[in-house]
Simulated scan of single mutants.
Amino acid sequence: MTEPAEADVAAPSRDGTRLRLLPTSILFVLANAPRAYWRGADRFSDALFNTLIALRWKRNTRTFARNLGYMPNFSAPRSFSEKMQWRKLFDRNCLFPLLCDKLAVRDYVRARAPDLVFPKIYWSGGNPEAVPFDDLQPPFVIKPSNRSGKIILVREKSGLDRKAIVRAARKWRRSRSHGRRLGEWAYSRVPNRILVEEFLSTKGALVSPADFKIFVFHGTAEFVYFSQGRHSDGGRLRGLYTRDWQQIPVDKWRRKGLVTLQGGVPRPGRLADLIAAAEAIAADLDHLRVDLYLLGDKIYFSETTIYHYSGIATYFSKNANTDPAPPRSVDDELGAFWTLPSLSRREQWKRGLLGFLSSGE
């Protein structure tokens, strides 16, 4: 999830001449940091720390504030979205790159949830021109191993545009590390490969199966985001539920605005098995989103996600005022499930300063 490069803005000097060029994201942080971090701050060090981090990760900070309506507290995060920023900036868990690798993660998952079924991998490699299109039978999907949200669905042979697919795959490989602008460092450690994978669909129709995104905190699944019909031409059904399948009356707020979660989904027959598999996969982490498909009576593995929407999408109570952004009460409630790794104030400052002094964003 990245933003386009920002234009520079001239900061005028007192005599009206151009002093220097400043990115709009820096001006945004400088304008908002005093009110967000310094007014009523209990500790000078916390206010200074938050300001420095906001300046270092200026685009990330600005995107967060514009989406969610408040400046993130990096030194003492409370909401789910704030804690996701903390994870991106400070948590260097050695498992994260593996969990972001759509190919390598399969062995990790098999060892922990051996009863899961995996979509077939028809081909993988680094050269898009080597994809054996003549030997592939649609439907199938083409996607990169180290990116999120990029997928090409080939429904039938007549719709197969080889040149367009190769161009897209080349672009995936040429582009900078996925998530770099928003601090998702783990993707930069994943080998850049192209995957051709089986497209799972209901029998007789090219409709994606029921997709369960299970949020696990400290080994316990707390809630489930349900989605169905993502790649279909018809309507899409979505909802947020507790682990006991009680609908949580919220909608979702993303960068593009409101996403209505209709709910009304019958309790799945293998809900207990879905939750057990997700908890087994996520047992060694403080938080992990485990995505599983239910097709017939079989549970398929989809992917693991350590940066849910990069922490810039949140849930909020239905009928809440969403102008210009949703209230953070539900975001705080979800954040209460997640206890971050313990870092001393000295270690947090050390990591923050090292990040501040490093190059690029």
Rank of each mutant, 00 (worst) to 15 (best):
G219Y: 08
S310Y: 04
F96M: 03
R238F: 02
K203M: 06
S158D: 09
G204Q: 05
V190H: 00
P119R: 13
I275P: 02
A272Y: 07
L19R: 15
L153P: 03
D101S: 01
L21G: 11
P34Y: 12
L237T: 13
L160R: 10
F199D: 05
D15K: 12
P249K: 13
L288A: 00
V29Y: 06
K256S: 11
R193C: 03
R39Y: 11
A169M: 01
A336W: 08
R173P: 00
E303D: 13
M84K: 07
K171G: 04
F133S: 02
Y309N: 07
S148Q: 05
V259W: 10
R270T: 05
T322N: 11
R193H: 03
L21C: 06
R162G: 04
T51A: 05
N73L: 08
Q137G: 05
F64K: 05
S158K: 11
P139H: 05
L30F: 08
E361N: 10
P139L: 13
D101C: 01
F49Y: 15
I53G: 03
W38L: 08
K203H: 08
T51E: 12
S201G: 11
G234A: 10
D244Q: 14
F337S: 04
F356S: 06
T242N: 02
S25V: 11
A210Q: 09
A278Q: 09
Q262T: 07
G296I: 08
F80I: 06
W253M: 10
F80E: 07
H231V: 12
R173G: 01
R254E: 14
R18C: 07
Q247K: 13
T305Y: 00
A113L: 06
L55G: 11
R270A: 03
T242I: 04
Y293E: 04
F226T: 02
K157H: 09
A113D: 09
S75V: 14
R255Q: 04
E347H: 15
H231K: 10
V190P: 01
S359T: 08
W253G: 01
D233V: 10
Y187T: 00
S344H: 04
R162Y: 07
R238D: 12
G235P: 09
G269D: 13
R176T: 15
V105L: 00
L271G: 06
I165L: 10
I312A: 08
R181N: 05
A169D: 01
L285G: 00
E222T: 05
A320I: 14
A76L: 11
R162H: 06
D101R: 01
E129G: 06
P266A: 08
P209I: 15
L21H: 12
Y300E: 15
S188Y: 06
P139Q: 08
W123S: 08
R106T: 07
Q228Y: 08
F140E: 02
L95I: 01
I142A: 02
E184H: 07
L295F: 13
S177P: 06
S79Q: 12
H287D: 01
Y300D: 07
K256D: 12
L294G: 04
E333Q: 15
I165H: 04
D211T: 05
N50Q: 14
I26P: 00
K157E: 05
L68M: 15
A221D: 03
G229L: 05
K88D: 05
T322D: 07
L98G: 01
